[in-house]
Design a protein around this nucleic acid. Structure first.
Length: 193
DNA sequence: CATGGGATTGACT
DNA sequence: GTCAATCCCATGC
């Protein structure tokens, strides 16, 4: 965790808004499928849109653990949403991974999604977990050496400058500029920035 | 123990 | 633009 190739994981120790910005351009992989992160959002226990705002419960326990693990929860009874837990143990903070540009395992993603178009495979937080085969069993798993891997930006993605906007699909603290997207990417969810 | 609300998506008017 | 699907879990009786 000390050389430059681990900088993407050290980012999870930073304030969660900085971590959300730095994860854009990194890759995420699970079971032979991978993609470049093109959209993230930050969540922190100091604001009411974050699950951890309610305090430590059975559901939010992973959010308060040490940085570098996955927080996977079920949304609207249907979708699994993937977060990277950030900041110190005892602080409830995480980056929601909202969209990827597919890299490897395209055919397996197409089978899982039942769709062909590349830009439809991972262009939303529920879509990318379905495409990569990520489900609730991976809640709490390690992002360093575990089944889900966060890796450095691939060639051509190191210098990406994310654009900032407000978070999607929430009613509380909706004004915070805590959403980061790759400008122009076809795989960013709607509305695009 | 019963109820209600989502960090969404896809189908449909 | 509207709307239902579906389940985990927090809350309240």
């Amino acid at each position: 965790m000390s050389d430059a190739s681990e900088r993407h994981l050290r980012a999870l120790e930073l304030p969660v808004v900085d971590a959300a910005r730095m994860l854009v351009g990194c890759t995420i992989a699970h079971g032979g499928c991978s993609g470049v992160i093109v959209e993230t959002e930050a969540y922190h226990d100091s604001e009411p849109a974050c699950h951890a705002f309610a305090g430590l419960t059975a559901r939010t326990r992973p959010l308060f653990e040490a940085p570098g693990i996955a927080y996977v929860y079920r949304s609207y009874g249907i979708h699994a949403l993937l977060n990277a837990v950030c900041e110190d143990e005892g602080v409830g903070a995480a980056v929601l991974i909202r969209a990827l540009e597919p890299l490897e395992g395209l055919e397996e993603m197409r089978e899982r999604r039942g769709l062909d178009r590349v830009e439809d495979l991972c262009s939303g937080p529920g879509k990318l977990t379905q495409a990569l085969g990520i489900d609730l069993e991976l809640n709490g798993s390690d992002l360093d050496g575990g089944p889900i891997a966060i890796e450095p930006a691939p060639p051509g993605w190191e210098e990406v400058e994310p654009v900032v906007g407000t978070r999607i699909g929430i009613t509380k603290a909706a004004e915070l500029p805590w959403r980061f997207c790759v400008p122009g990417s076809r795989s960013v969810s709607r509305p695009r920035l």
